[in-house]
Design a protein around this nucleic acid. Structure first.
Length: 554
RNA sequence: UCCUUCUUAGCUCAGUUGGUUAGAGCAUCUGACUGUUAAUCAGAGGGUCGCUGGUUCAAGUCCAGCAGAGGGAGCCA
């Protein structure tokens, strides 16, 4: 009896103690943790302003709390490596998680380069092998996932400012080196394409991925800041008259048992939409509808072309930005295109320095065996060069004259000699204009109407249309756009001439009947922009999972 | 789709006018090393030379077909 009498208050006290500990942990120390930076900053402030007066006691108090906090707190929250590398928190324990890039070990100390994708730079983990047995690191090969806790310290080595002196380390996921295909060395981009599921873990693809995000974000920011509205145009479309290329068909019909109508043709009435449908090749026509009410709109969505194109500049699935603006003529359109490209390049230079520096060095390394005149301009200089110089604007007719009178043409160096006005320019001609003659981006306008789409505004000369193509060095056409034909009769006439069925586009034509106004827009291939900004050579290396003919892996 | 080049170890690549048992660096494993930067040093294991057929005493090497990849062209963004 007396034993239980003694036990009751004892248990009660024990519970109370636990409760108090919990309260202290949750409230007091979490507060301290959350405000550690304010405290640090306050201390620094004290150093500067009060010349060390009041500093020592508060520093001592701070360090005391840090020590106490390190002992009591059970869970150390993860710090991203990008933040850790800039941190000056040398007092509180820090936890980092990521994937091993390389491990180097000697008798007493091991080094692990850890990366978590937040930056191209690695955090060096320093493991004292007297404190942590080597066996604990045995499975931490390249690409193993690791969680490490320790104190950030100024680096004793010379390769980095800070490093993490590890107190405890845990293997989160191993990567068996006998099976894991990537090594801490340079792989060919072709090989990495076959390992697209793992290539995010390489420096190059990490850098490209971060820049890709920055460009996506900057595009939305650019348009938002200018008062444009983003429009989601349909991905599945029934109109096949856009003339932008071969389309992928979308159907729920059983392909091994297609229903036929009385004319023995496939009966699309039985298909999901009651008619034949395709994946979009362009959001332009729908974007025009929105622009003729909202004034300034843009689309940024996936685009699909079933062309059997096998080049370093083409994808079957790519992303396209298509602004469309009411009351714009072709000159406003060119201004917008140039302003936008420069904005995006500037954004990359200002926000992706580390990644661009890496890609620049990579490119230099790759091209070091090339002859001087085959080498491309250093990446960052090239981007700055485009920023600083206005794009050259000439008409198709002027371009033909320049090409015709060029020494290159006279010496017969073109595979397709320039003979008569009216033919489409070949890649070699565009490249000559951009890379040899003007040596900067060129905007070509006023093309012959027969080589351009039906919706482009016809000039008064009766032979040309208000098209504009922006040509970039190394890439070719990065933007294709035009002022649109806003006159109902002219548009209808052009559709008939080019065998585009007006019935399927009745809705498009109606906008020319109800409050039609001059308007213009363009399409920017997002991956082609990425090629230019990253300096990569193949479009399959600037999109995570490229879709090309005979390739739909991942 | 056309032109062209390539395919050798897990990766990157040598391999001579066809001639013994096909090599190197990296990676892996073992050992050495007091702080490394894609660490270094020593050693070990690792190959149906893309596949199929042909020429030849003899084929990684020459020929044909097929497959895959790269570069260029066309189409375009």
């Amino acid at each position: 009896m007396s034993a239980t009498k003694v036990m009751i208050p004892f248990v009660f006290l024990l519970l109370l103690q636990q409760l108090i500990k919990q309260v202290i942990r949750v409230y007091v120390f979490n507060q301290l943790f959350n405000y550690q930076w304010q405290i640090c900053n306050q201390l620094k402030y004290n150093i500067k302003e009060f010349n060390f007066q009041n500093f020592e006691p508060s520093k001592a108090l701070f360090l005391f709390f840090c020590k106490l906090f390190n002992k009591i707190r059970k869970h150390v929250r993860r710090t991203e490596i990008k933040e850790a590398l800039l941190s000056e928190n040398f007092e509180l324990e820090m936890n980092v998680k990521g994937w091993v890039r390389t491990k180097r070990a000697s008798k007493n100390v091991a080094f692990i380069a850890l990366n978590d994708g937040s930056t191209i730079h690695n955090l060096q983990l320093v493991v004292d092998l007297e404190k942590i047995p080597e066996e604990a690191l045995a499975l931490m090969h390249t690409s193993a996932a690791v969680s490490a806790t320790g104190h950030l310290v100024p680096s004793a080595g010379s390769g980095q400012r800070v490093e993490l002196s590890v107190n405890s380390i845990e293997l989160l996921g191993e990567a068996n080196p006998d099976e894991y295909p990537l090594q801490p060395k340079k792989h060919s981009l072709e090989f990495l394409r076959e390992k697209a599921h793992l290539r995010f873990r390489t420096n190059t693809f990490g850098a490209v991925s971060r820049i890709r995000h920055a460009m996506i974000f900057a595009i939305h920011k650019f348009f938002n800041d200018k008062g444009f509205y983003n429009i989601h145009t349909p991905i599945i479309t029934a109109s096949d008259a856009e003339g932008a290329g071969e389309m992928f068909q979308v159907t729920t019909l059983k392909l091994d048992n297609l229903p036929l109508n009385e004319q023995k043709e496939i009966d699309f009435k039985q298909d999901f939409f009651g008619r034949s449908a395709n994946l979009t090749v362009s959001g332009q026509l729908e974007a025009e509808l929105a622009a003729l009410a909202l004034s300034k709109v843009y689309t940024f969505g996936p685009t699909f072309r079933a062309e059997n194109s096998n080049t370093s500049r083409h994808l079957a699935e790519f992303w396209m930005i298509e602004p469309e603006v009411a009351f714009f003529d072709i000159h406003d359109d060119m201004d917008l295109a140039e302003e936008m490209l420069k904005y995006l390049i500037r954004y990359a230079l200002e926000n992706c320095k580390d990644d661009l520096n890496f890609l620049s060095k990579r490119l230099e390394e790759e091209e070091k065996n090339k002859k001087a005149d085959e080498k491309s301009m250093e990446l960052i200089s090239k981007l700055n060069f485009v920023l600083e110089n206005p794009f050259e604007r000439i008409t198709y007719t002027e371009a033909i004259d320049i090409l015709k009178n060029s020494n290159h043409n006279k010496k017969g160096k073109f595979s397709y000699p320039i003979e008569k006005w009216g033919a489409d320019l070949q890649s070699e001609h565009e490249r000559y204009l951009v890379e040899k003659h003007f040596r900067k981006p060129v905007i070509l306008t006023d093309y012959p109407k027969d080589i351009k789409a039906f919706y482009m505004k016809q000039n008064d000369d009766g032979t040309t249309v208000r098209a504009m193509d922006v040509l970039f060095p190394g890439i070719g056409e990065i933007i294709g756009g035009s002022q649109r034909e806003e006159r109902y009769d002219k548009l209808l006439q052009r559709m008939e001439e080019m065998h585009v069925e007006p019935e399927g586009l009745w809705w498009y034509l109606e906008t020319r009947k109800f409050g039609t106004v001059p308007h213009a827009g363009f399409g920017l291939g997002f991956e082609r922009l990425m090629l230019f900004v990253t300096g990569m050579g193949n479009i399959r290396d600037v999109i995570p999972f490229p879709r090309t003919p005979q390739n739909c892996e991942f």
